[in-house]
Structure formats: structure tokens, C-alpha cells
Amino acid sequence: MSNNARVVASGGNRPKPPSIRKSPPSFAWLGVLPFLVFVVLFLFLPSLSLFVGGFQDAKGNFTLENIRGLFTPFILNAYWVTIKISFTTAVMGGIVGFFLAYALVAGGVPNWVRSSLMTFCGVASNFAGVPLAQAFIFTLGRVGLLTVFLKEALNIDLYGQGFNLYSFWGLSVTYLYFQLPLMVLIITPPIEGLRREWREAAENLGATPSQYWWHIGIPVLMPSLLGSMILLFGNAFGAYATALSLTGGLINLVTILIGSQIKGDVLHNPNLGYALAFGMVVVMAVIMSIYYALRRRSEYWLKQ
């Protein structure tokens, strides 16, 4: 403000339009500036440096060699395994999460069950990483409680039948612990948005429940369902801590590979590492764009 006062004072005899005093345009920019500087320094620059690094060779010259390097079997496999596990847990978490959310919303369930399960979902969706991995080791590891129980009480030998917590399916079961509650949290508002009037109107016109779902419920919910599952996909795609502490880095995920690359140049080419990391950002950007497009589509019905 003092800055502005000086401008007015130094204006001499020339008449100034009074509007300048009321809202100096520079002021808003000044207040927003720290935020913008911060974002440039700690969000844009780091991403840019990976992006640029991905297109450079060891001497700093422009090259497409690293991008080509991404399409070698080892790295393609890492992307493939990451995508497979993200897809599996997104679909499983999405379907079970939807049914659970519907069960909680649809009624027939006491209020306290509903609210405490909802609260639990908030906790569980944030309970991930190292502690989650360890909880599953105590449960489904070789001497985990459930493993031993199944073996001794029911004579089911999980590990004898090929199950391994430290592999694809073990990781999927563990990821579900945050995927499922996340689904419940994001799909509940759209389910609540299904109007009772629509159902009543359909029933009055003689529709059976399956006709109601097929022609009204599912079409209205579809964008939200797909959008939520895509969000779950992205959620698993970037997971690192859970996978690392569960498998000790033995599973070939992109995040694990990037982690090893930071610790010591396992790819023997730092620039390939940058390309690998930026590749993740590209995949995530595509995912989030689809998510927001679908969300806008689903809000159409919720706002009516």
C-alpha cells in the first residue's frame, strides 16, 4: 500500500484517475507471487529437469536415444507389471468398493455401522506404505497369523499352493487395503446422488429392478464408476513405499526401478532414468485428464 501512496504522491499535478487507489492491479500479483515462485521452484523445475534430462545424452546433447531405451524389454516389462497391478487392484477395489458403498448408502444398515465404516475408510485409505506392508507380513507372510491358521485349522497350505505375499497377488491383496476404502469414499457421493424419485418413477411405469439399473442406475453412475477406478489406477501406479517394504525391491515396478536408479545408477545411464521418471508423469497426466473429464460428466446428473 505504501508503494501505491508514493506513486500517487509523485504524480505531481497531473490528475490521476481515482480508480487506481481503490484496487491497484499489482497488489494481487504481489500476494500471489510467493505461491507462484514456490510452485515454479519445487514443482515445475524438478519436473522440467527430468523432462530435459530425458532428452539428453551424457554430454548434454539432444538425443532421442533414452526414449528409445524405454522400449527395451526390461523397462517395458516394468511398465507392464506396474500397469497390470494398478489395473487389477483398481478393478477389484472398484467393484467391491462400489458394492460396499451401495450397501452402506442403500439402507437396511444401522446408522452407526454406516458412519463407523465410513470413518474407518478414511483411516484405511491413509494407512499405507511401510506400516501397511508390515501388517500384511504379520498376516499373510510365511509365518503370518492367517497363513498359520489356514494351515493348522483348515489344512490349506497357501504357500504350498503357490501363493506368495512378496509377489504380484500378494502385492495386490495389500494394495486393496487402501484401494477399497478409497473407492468407498469417492463413489459414495454419486450413489447418494441417485434420486429416489427416479426409482419410484421407473417402478410406477412398471420397471423391474434390473430394468431400473440397466436403463437408469448404471448409465447415470457409469462416468463416476469409470472415473473412480481410473483414480484408483493412478493411486496404485505411483505407489512405492508399500511395494518396496513388501517385496524388498524384488518386484519389477517402475517406481521400484526409479528408486534403485536414485540410489545407484542401476540402468547405467542416468538420462534413461530421467526418461523413465518422466514417462510416469506422462501416464499419470493422461489418467488424471480422463478422470477429470469423466468427473465433469458425472457432475451433470448430480447437479440436477
Binding site: 519445487f42 514443482l43 523445475l45 524438478p46 519436473s47 529437469s49 527430468l50 534430462g53 493412478g234 501406479f237 505411483g238 512405492y240 517406481t255 526409479i258 528408486g259 536408479q261 536414485i262 532414468g273 530421467y274 521418471a277 518422466f278 510416469m280 508423469v281 499419470m284 497426466a285 489418467i287 488424471m288
Partner: peptide, 17 residues
């Protein structure tokens, strides 16, 4: 925007920068 940058990528970029 941070939604599109996994933590492992963010830390990689921060260290490099």
C-alpha cells in the same frame, strides 16, 4: 498438478535440480 507426479518422481526431480 501434484496428483500427476508420483512421490518417487518428485523426489528424483528435487534431487536432480
Amino acid at each position: 498438478l501434484p496428483f500427476v507426479i508420483p512421490a518417487i518422481v518428485l523426489v528424483f526431480g528435487l534431487i536432480r535440480t
